[in-house]
C-alpha cells in the first residue's frame, strides 16, 4: 500500500501548492487524480515518487515511511517507483539513443550490458518500438515514439508503483490508447499499483479503478491558486 499522509509541498514554503493532502493507493489498484492544470497535482505526484521533499507529511510505502527524498532516499525505495511525465522531449536525455535511454535505470544499478539488452528488447516489443527506432536519438523520433520509450524506461526496473503524470496529454487518441494498454498489461502481470494524474475525466474514469477529484483533496479550494484570475 502506498500512503500519502498529510502532504504539504511546494516551491515557496510560504505559499505551498499542496496543503495537507491524504491519498492512498492499494496494491494493484489504479487511482486517477483529476484536477485542472496548475493546481499542484504534479507536485503531489513528484512527492509520491520521492522526487520532491514535502515541507510536511510523509509517504509510507508498504508500511515503511520514506527514508528520504531524491538521492537521500535509499535506492530500493526510489526504484520502487516508475515515473512518466507529460513532455517526452523534456524527459529524455537528448544525447542518449532510445536503446540506452530505456536501459539507463538498469545500467545505473550496475546490471550488465547483456542483461540490460535482453530486458530492453522485451520492453521495446511491449511498447511497439522497432530495432531501427531504438538506434535513434530523441530528436529523430516523434513525440509519441519518444513517450513509448519513456514508458519503457519507467517499467524497466519492474517498479511496484507506477506514477503517470499527464502521460498522454500531448498525444493523439490512438497513441494514448496504446500506452494505456501497455500500462494495464504491466499492472495485471506485476500487481503494481498505479497513480494517474490528469485533467481528462473521460480518460481517467475509463482507465482507473477510482478517480479522485483534486477539489475533494484540498481542504480549502479557494486557497489553491490565489494569484491566478479566471
Amino acid at each position: 500500500m502506498l500512503e500519502l499522509r498529510g502532504i504539504t509541498a511546494g516551491y515557496d514554503p510560504r505559499d505551498p501548492v499542496v496543503r495537507d493532502v491524504y491519498l492512498t493507493v492499494a496494491d494493484g489498484e489504479a487511482v486517477g487524480l483529476l484536477g485542472p492544470s496548475g493546481c499542484g497535482k504534479s507536485t503531489l505526484a513528484r512527492v509520491a515518487a520521492l522526487l520532491h521533499r514535502p515541507t510536511a507529511g510523509t509517504v509510507v510505502i508498504d508500511g515503511e515511511p520514506a527514508r528520504g527524498w531524491r538521492h537521500r532516499a535509499p535506492r530500493e525505495q526510489r526504484t520502487a517507483f516508475g515515473v512518466v511525465f507529460q513532455q517526452p522531449r523534456q524527459s529524455a536525455d537528448p544525447r542518449l539513443r532510445l536503446r540506452d535511454l530505456i536501459a539507463e535505470p538498469l545500467r545505473a544499478s550496475g546490471r550488465s550490458r547483456a542483461e540490460a539488452a535482453a530486458r530492453v528488447g522485451e520492453l521495446a516489443a511491449a511498447v511497439g518500438l522497432s530495432e531501427e527506432l531504438l538506434a535513434r536519438r530523441p530528436h529523430e523520433v516523434s513525440d509519441g515514439q519518444l513517450q513509448r520509450a519513456c514508458l519503457a524506461r519507467a517499467l524497466v526496473p519492474r517498479p511496484r508503483w507506477l506514477i503517470c503524470d499527464e502521460m498522454t496529454a500531448m498525444l493523439d487518441a490512438s497513441t494514448t490508447a496504446a500506452l494505456v494498454a501497455v500500462v494495464e498489461d504491466y499492472r495485471r502481470e506485476s500487481g503494481a499499483g498505479l497513480l494517474v494524474v490528469g485533467h481528462d475525466a473521460a480518460l481517467l474514469d475509463r482507465w482507473c479503478d477510482r478517480t479522485v477529484r483534486w477539489s475533494t483533496l484540498v481542504p480549502n479550494k479557494e486557497d489553491a491558486s490565489p494569484r491566478k484570475a479566471t
Binding site: L51, H71, R78, Q90, D93, E104, A108
Partner: peptide, 26 residues
C-alpha cells in the same frame, strides 16, 4: 530541473552518475 534528471534519480542513478552521465555531457 529537467524531468529527465528526475527520471534518472527515480531509476536509481547515484549523484555521481547523474553528474557524469547526464549533467556534464550537457
Amino acid at each position: 530541473t529537467r524531468p529527465y534528471i528526475d527520471a534518472a534519480v527515480s531509476g536509481g542513478a547515484s549523484r555521481w552518475r547523474v553528474a557524469v552521465r547526464h549533467l556534464l555531457p550537457g
